[in-house]
Amino acid sequence: MRNKFADAIYEIGKTNPRICALVADISPAGSMVRFREEFPERFVNCGVAEQAMIGIAAGMALKGMRPFCYTIATFSLYRPFEMVRDDLAYQNLPVTVIGMGAGVIYSTLGGTHHTMEDIAVASAIPNMTVLAPCDPEEMRLATTWCATESTGPVYMRLGKAGEPDLTSDAVDPFEVGKIRYLRRGDGDLCILTYGITTKMAFDVADRITARTGKAPSVVSVHTIKPLDEAGILAALNAHDRTVVIEEHVPHGGLASRVKEIAWDNGVTKGLRSFTLKDEFIHFYGSYDELLVRHGLDVSQICDSL
């Protein structure tokens, strides 16, 4: 995803002179080198100074640019939080903050590098759009939207690397602000998810099909804010059961938003959520092993359904 993001920025930047990239001593490889070499004036490495990165991006946006700020999610959103809120969101500037490697993918780096609350944090800010594409193509479309159509700040959560193609057979096209059926099932179970856990959602769906013969729907909720409330409500009503899977703490993310929608609309169908625990887990193993500790893996989800 990182390198594909760099490719996307480079391609858009070739024809759009307002696109600029600011990084904080962390940069995707691949085409970001080409971007830096071909458009040096539009690439700024702010060093290990994330508050400066966001503030400078805001100043550039006030002078007509459309900056992308890139670093690991904890540092792009948490460290300069007040700059994100005041400089970007309060002034409603078209700046995209990339939260790279969100979730607990940096498993062995420990809790300082885990980003478990970013959706709640970013979604809490007025004017902020929150995106979490699930595969490289969805990321490319989301990046293009940020670069050309968004009118305010965006927080975009990205995985780290190696995400497979999950959308080439999607039922629906990508449209910011709308949920997207990647697979439409038989009305028994709907899985709502976004970003990196979308692959897990497909695996859960496949295992359920193998076990029961039923065909779950898999939905990419790539736009978490503004959330497609009508689309979520329709999904809840169209299925006997709905499950939310997200690599995020239980509160303030998609799971709690879907529960709000269900409650507000008197939905009485089944609704479950599988999330990270509200807990800092001091465990230094692989990413998959850490997810198991959080109760977020295909086997535990399928067994509990």
């Binding site: 700024v44 503030g55 400078i56 550039m60 006030l62 007509g64 700059m83």
Partner: peptide, 15 residues
């Protein structure tokens, strides 16, 4: 200072 730096950089080096 961040806002001013971003503005100044854009004026001088981009525009």
């Amino acid at each position: 200072m961040g806002l001013a730096t971003g503005m100044a950089y854009t004026e001088r080096h981009v525009h």
